[in-house]
Design a protein around this nucleic acid. Structure first.
Length: 482
RNA sequence: UCCUCCUUAGCUCAGUUGGUUAGAGCACAUCACUGUUAAUGAUGGGGUCCUCCGUUCAAGUCGGAGAGGGGGAGCCA
């Protein structure tokens, strides 16, 4: 058995001096031909290995370079140096894997995130990405814990789908037909009846519709999986492949939906503050350092930890779309004509409008409800008693400082006649969606749900600003490395 | 897809009104030192100045096109 080692995190959290240990990890730096900073990914902290002068072959010491992997036998001792309380005095050092220091791209110095993005396979070995991806793991775990504790069933919705009615953007086609010389039908179109599934199929853009089918039996379900959008979006907030959490709840109205979403977000933040305190502290310090480089007017004014604690201790502001428009119209910003896009009832809120509401006006997360029906999806429930010409739906978006839309959800239209009318008006073929309409035909109930962009949540919690830095291997237009 | 900025050593960057042999720190090599904390000191090697085309006696520097990247916008999570 090889793995009889102690992890660095455990070793640093109070191993008695005098204990004989085996540690394994990768060299971060080798100082003074004596002191090895060894890291195994369990924490950003390194264990200092002391290779006392004269006790090791010159040939071995030569091979202890940044990036090399080591197995070290030694004794835990109180450190004589100042930077750490304990260290391991090595009795035996074995090189598991050499690392040519001239070619290894990571140096004991600050690298740009852009550079590390190109070295995505090695960036896990840096402090920043170590923290980010340990937090990503924790958040994923917390998602399951949150819903499991509340009796939700984790439903695996399909990744390959023949449904394209969601309309949430361009889809990636899934096919085994040859690109050249694909079979054609009489109309000269590609004949998908000869394709693998006998019809056209795509990668899913959302598990929501299937999620609704599950909620109509289990009462409460959630999905948590990858989704795919072939939109040519080149921003710090979009990926072609991203992960989404979509709970769907029977017997819930829009208010229940908001309550759950707010509770969920706070739960995730709280979980990470408790379980990843070191990583949050590191990212907090890193962000503070970055802020110092910025001109005063561009600084956010408070730290990462502070921001998360403010979110935890305040209720999310809840306003209607109509109120949001009024706030914008009465804002000094509007009166000074600083908005690039027109503000009037009926528009979709632009990024600049959302940012103003969240970052200038309320300075905390905001839930906007009751959007105009004309700009929202077919499955959202029509609000009753609307002014003619101002029909709204029971939609809700949660807007977060620095991120924008982090959650999008709605109460679903459970009334068959209204749903069918809406689908017809939006030219959605009812026959293709018969399975979906069955939930309204047989024991329909009020229900609601939302989607939380997992990577956007990670951005918020880590204070990172580019979504490509919070997913291990980012897929974006013109970029699919690894 | 649109707007905008950027691309100089392995990395982070400097490079004057266009002018001879393009610099610094880190990294790397050699030596010295040895309880260091991104160790330190000395010496040394290291360049398709993103690519192509053009202007000019002369282009890292000016112009055009292209590629890659950053930021913003649209779309959205």
């Amino acid at each position: 058995m090889f793995n009889q080692r102690i992890k660095v995190k455990q070793l640093l959290s109070g191993t008695a001096t005098g204990t004989e240990v085996v540690v394994m990890g990768w060299v971060r730096t080798f100082r003074n031909n004596q002191f090895i900073a060894l890291n195994d990914g369990s924490t950003n902290a390194n264990i200092q290995i002391v290779a006392s002068l004269g006790e090791f072959d010159e040939a071995i010491l030569k091979r202890i370079t940044t990036g090399a992997s080591l197995k070290v036998n030694g004794t835990v001792v109180e450190s004589l140096g100042k930077g750490q309380s304990v260290e391991v005095k090595a009795s035996k050092i074995e090189i598991l894997g050499d690392s040519d220091a001239e070619k290894f791209p990571l140096q004991p110095k600050k690298h740009s995130l852009e550079f590390l993005r190109e070295k995505a396979h090695l960036r896990f070995r840096t402090n920043t990405f170590g923290s980010v991806f340990r937090i990503r793991h924790s958040l994923a775990f917390a998602v399951h814990q949150f819903y499991n504790d509340r009796g939700f069933v984790y439903l695996h919705t399909p990744i390959i789908t023949s449904s394209d009615a969601e309309g949430a953007g361009e889809m990636f086609r899934v096919t085994t037909l040859p690109l050249e010389g694909a079979p054609k039908n009489e109309k000269g179109e590609i004949d998908y009846t000869q394709d693998f599934f006998g019809k056209g199929t795509n990668l899913t853009v959302s598990g929501q519709l299937e999620g609704e089918l599950g909620a109509m039996a289990f009462s409460e379900i959630y999905t948590f999986g990858p989704t795919f959008r072939a939109e040519n979006s080149n921003t710090t907030r979009h990926l072609a492949e991203f992960w989404m959490i979509e709970p769907e709840m029977a017997f819930h109205d829009i208010e229940d939906n908001m309550n759950l979403a707010e509770e969920f977000i706070k739960y995730l933040i709280n979980y990470v503050l408790k379980n990843n305190a070191d990583d949050i502290d590191f990212l907090d310090a890193r962000l503070a350092e970055e802020e110092k480089q910025l001109p005063t007017e561009k600084r956010s004014g408070f730290g990462l930890k502070e921001k998360l604690e403010i979110v935890l201790s305040n209720n999310f502001e809840r306003i209607t779309y109509t109120e949001a428009i009024d706030i914008l119209l009465n804002s000094p910003h509007y009166k000074k004509k600083k908005f690039q896009y027109e503000v009037k009832w009926g528009i979709d809120l632009q990024s600049e409008h959302e940012r103003y509401l969240v970052e200038q006006h309320f300075k905390k997360p905001v839930i906007v409800t009751g959007y105009p029906a004309a700009i929202k999806a077919f499955y959202m429930r029509m609000n009753d008693g609307c002014e003619p010409g101002r029909e709204t739906v029971a939609a809700m978006d949660i807007l977060a400082p620095g991120i924008g839309e982090i959650v999008g959800g709605s109460q679903r239209e459970e009334r068959l006649d209204k749903l069918e009318a809406r689908m017809k008006a939006m030219h959605i073929p009812l026959e293709d969606m018969s399975y979906y309409l069955d939930t309204r035909r047989f024991g329909t109930v009020p229900h609601a749900g939302f989607g939380l962009g997992f990577e956007r949540m990670i951005l918020f919690v880590t204070g990172m600003t580019n979504i490509r830095d919070v997913i291990p291997f980012a897929r974006t237009p013109k970029n699919c490395e690894y």
